[in-house]
Design a protein around this nucleic acid. Sequence first.
RNA 1: GCGCCCGUAGCUCAGUUGGAUAGAGCAGCGGACUUCUAAUCCGCAGGUCGAGGGUUCGAAUCCUUCCGGGCGCGCCA
Length: 663
Amino acid sequence: MQEIRRQIAAEIQHALEEITGEAVDLPRVEDPPRREMGDLACTAALQVAKRLGRNPRELGQAVASRLSEQGVEGVLEFSIAGPGFLNMTLDRAAVLARLLDGFDSGNPDLGMKLLIEHTSINPNKAAHIGHLRNACMGDTFARIHRELGYAVEVHNYIDDTGVQVADVVIGFLDLRGESPQEVRDLPEPFDYLCWDVYTDISERMAEDTTLQERRRDVLLALEHGEGVVAEMGTVVVERIVARHIRTMARLDIAYDLLVKEGDILRLDLWSEAFERLKASDQVRLVTEGKHEGCWVMHLSGVKGFENLEEADKVLVRSNGVATYVAKDIAYHFWKYGLLERDFTYRRLRGLEDAIAAAPYESAGASGERMEFGHADRAVTVIDVRQAYLQAVVAQAFEVIGEHEACRSLTHFAYEMVALTPATAEALGIPVDEASAGRSFVEMSGRRGYGVKADDLISELGQRASAEVATRNPEMGAEECASTGAQLAVAAVRYFLLKYTRNAVIAFDMDDALSFEGETGPYIQYAAVRAARIFDKLSEELGRDVAGAVEGALAEGGDDPLGIRSPGVGERLASDDGELWDLILALGRYQEAIQLAADSLEIAVLAKYGFQLAQQFNRFYHSYPILQAADGADRALRVLVAYAFQQRLRDVLSLLGIPIPDRM
RNA sequence: GCGCCCGUAGCUCAGUUGGAUAGAGCAGCGGACUUCUAAUCCGCAGGUCGAGGGUUCGAAUCCUUCCGGGCGCGCCA
């Protein structure tokens, strides 16, 4: 089906070019607003007519006549409606032939390496739902690009030398008076403990200047890797990162490499990047004014920075310490293989119980040499508030003359997750006057306001598990729990992926805990239904349905269901309901993932999955399969349901949603 | 102040890059389980697409001016 759509688009393009003598973009083949208008529609003639100043209806008519005359495989009839819409009726025999050709679509190897950075949570406290949005989007974006044929490398950047870690280090050393060894031995959940330690120290830090001075010293010690401070920093970061990896593993999110910010300095990646930058006159040492003694990147007059109050961005402070953005610049130069120096690596240990393949981490000078980086394209998933800094990083590529890298570097920006006032109140977060009237309340790690990721996943799992137990009395407690966990994954991931990037998600607990309507479990339910039908049919048939269908599709294979019988084609030709609608929906798969990839809108794919499931549920209600009137009806319905099952499996796999056996 | 984003049904959101009668879910009302799982399906009701002006065959979508809201503009990360 998707091949048919693609070919039709190419034919329309060709016809338009022949008629007008002008180059024309590959047009989009869409669904008409109402089915009576046809199976497919295209507005390309209108757009081209506008550009060339021609009469749209006439141009459309010319295209329709031409295509009708020459004939296009898969299309029975072309017609023109309104101002020049090209509507098409499909040749169902051709569609059936495509269905019978099988469903595999092998991934072409594009020979392109895409490096995706996501998650990148400050390693000083438990992950909250805002972090989950980042990770879910990044993970599905990675899955989509693997499907599209990219070599994908997923990074999680660990800021192990920042203020947030420093604060928790001070909390343990100064406030709680604990040694690194004692902290190493503290019980789990360590990230929950740190959540509170961080809140506590943040409050004190705000009004205690000696603590603020202490923070400066701690930051320096962390950066240089010296003494008990650095030791504490290592313990905190290692333990928190392990917790984050486990949290994400619950949602089937994994990484290839964790890059630690400290290693960028320790291994002199920054020094090398700095030398490159200094060669340009845009990066220079300031000798007077408020930035005296700092190395800055000069941004005035640069596209995108025209209206800055402050046209200089500090890269190296007057005390010689590189800023966060400076290290990020070095990291990004390295991502594109622009630096001579490299990290060393080692496998992250102690996660064998939680994750199949533990990620590698950067390892100072002591690890082994491996091949990471050298990307053709790099995508950074960070919320929209980082847009300015991301633009500075991109500009650094311009500064060293790497225009191609600057162009391909992408900031995957998205809006924050906040809480509905009702949910905030239920969590005991004070909702002030100003927020009360608004539609959401912002989370704050510093204040400890937020919904912890693990709490949400666990709560969902428990609710789902209880529901599964009610619906399946014969199911054991263990199976209920594991099924509940699978439903929780679907609920969380779909909830965080269904919104478009720049919508602020007002997180509502009741809404998120719902399993009905537009939710992940709804989609799972459709998949389970299809599987159950095939289970029963397999029993009846005395053989595996998938095998029977695949056998029928194979050249010369046996066909116990009669899928290749002429009756099947006749039934398809005369269908005027949800069966045909489902086939049309199946054809939009390729378009959905391509659009999701190009527009950075994961929601496009999420919605497609939902719509596909919805279409199947309608089909399910009107087209009994086991009780079909005769063999031809049954064979056709099995074929369509099977095609749906295969396709939905692909979509759910991209969304990172598992398919339970029963629910 | 400057920049970016948002404003669509009671609520939460889509809207295929300017197309045909603006769609989903939730909430509400009414139906469908002796039939492949009712976590489902069908129907009803619900809209001055923030407001005004403009561009054209055609605007929720593009331009512009307002109104309302969010975010960003550190020698923090």
